[in-house]
């Protein structure tokens, strides 16, 4: 690990320094402290990190060994967690932030970025993850929510956050709270890609609709989306979210990953799909390659051969409503 140019692990991100201001664009985030060389934790630095992950695959790992396999397969980052979503689903009970020892073991094992999950609204788990030096915090519906009303004030941290969304309004509310990256939620731990497609189509369709609206209809659009007008107007003008949009939740095959990319995802999170399959190393490589050449069926066909058993899936429709993870977060 390199020198820390700034203070140890940047800003504290305590609940107390939450500011009332709602910062919407890159230039108006909570003022970042100077660290000597420059400013850490600015919106540009946080969102920029996600830009560098584009076209890549982020893989869930539960041990340093799995993290190495992911890195060797070409993952752009790994998500350190104690149980993959399929196991969380199967075993039930509460799911919380992982043991710091386990996260640190993974940070030490690989040189690619390491992400970790905090519960929705659990701002202290997020403080702990920042203190451990994780590169991105996923405020995730895969874990049990800690607050059923509020998400974390993500502006208050140096570490950037990724959040899940099932539709444009949800994505914009997370961005308003400071998320520097969005992933469509899908339905984690199922191996069923149908919800991932629904959510990605929904977000993209709502963005396309905004771009076609006359300006005087954007005010009502913002009301309907339950998102700030300025952000809605920005999306209408640019035709994209102001942060990177990945996909997640149910991607199990190279063709799944490629389909999500063709639907407009800028990169892919694969959770249980790799290490719950017959040959994780081969499948991980294949999904990386299919993501890069997502528009070339010859490449996808080639990399899809001989991968062994895919993860045993659960059909989302057979999944009783109370355990649908995508419905956590609002």
């Amino acid at each position: 690990m390199g020198t820390h140019v700034g203070g140890r692990r940047g800003r504290a991100g305590t609940h107390q320094d939450t500011l009332c201001e709602v910062a919407l664009s890159e230039t108006t985030g909570t003022p970042a402290p100077s660290t000597g060389v420059g400013e850490v934790g600015t919106a540009r630095v946080k969102r920029g990190m996600a830009e560098m992950l584009k076209g890549g695959v982020i893989m869930d790992v539960v041990t340093p060994e799995q993290a190495k396999i992911a890195e060797d397969a070409g993952a752009v980052a790994v998500m350190a967690l104690e149980r993959v979503p399929a196991d969380i689903r199967a075993q039930g009970g509460l799911a919380r932030m992982s043991d710091p020892d386990m996260i640190e073991g993974i940070i030490d094992a690989v040189s690619v970025p390491v992400m970790a999950k905090a519960r929705i609204g659990h701002f202290v788990e997020a403080q702990v993850l920042q203190s451990l030096g994780v590169d991105y915090v996923d405020e995730s519906e895969v874990l049990s929510p800690a607050d059923y009303a509020n998400h974390i004030d993500k502006w208050a941290y140096t570490v950037p956050f990724v959040c899940g969304a099932t539709n444009l309004g949800e994505a914009l509310r997370r961005i308003t709270e400071g998320a520097a990256m969005i992933r469509s939620k899908g339905e984690a731990g199922t191996g069923d890609v149908s919800n991932a497609t629904t959510h990605m189509r929904q977000i993209r369709q709502q963005i396309r609709r905004l771009t076609s609206l006359p300006t005087d209809e954007l005010f009502v659009a913002a009301k309907e989306l339950q998102a700030p007008y300025e952000l809605v107007a920005e999306v209408a003008r640019t035709g994209k979210l102001p942060v990177v949009l990945f996909t997640a939740g149910g991607i199990a095959t190279p063709a799944d990953a490629a389909m999500m990319m063709q639907l407009g995802a800028e990169g892919v999170f694969v959770g249980s799909g790799i290490f719950k399959s017959g040959d994780p190393a081969a499948r991980a490589k294949a999904i990386v390659q299919a993501t890069t050449f997502h528009d070339d069926p010859d490449v996808i066909a080639k990399v899809s051969r001989g991968l062994g058993e895919a993860m045993v899936g659960i059909n989302v429709e057979e999944d009783p409503e109370p355990v649908r993870l995508a419905e956590r977060g609002w």
């Binding site: 690990m1 390199g2 020198t3 820390h4 140019v5 700034g6 692990r9 940047g10 660290t35 060389v37 420059g38 400013e39 850490v40 934790g41 600015t42 540009r44 630095v45 920029g48 990190m49 040189s111 970025p113 920042q130 030096g133 994780v134 590169d135 991105y136 140096t158 570490v159 950037p160």
Partner: peptide
């Protein structure tokens, strides 16, 4: 070239 020389993401920064 030294990879990740400035540290992890929390150490990432912008400057003139």
């Amino acid at each position: 070239v030294r990879r990740n020389a400035f540290g992890r993401q929390v150490d990432s920064f912008e400057a003139d």
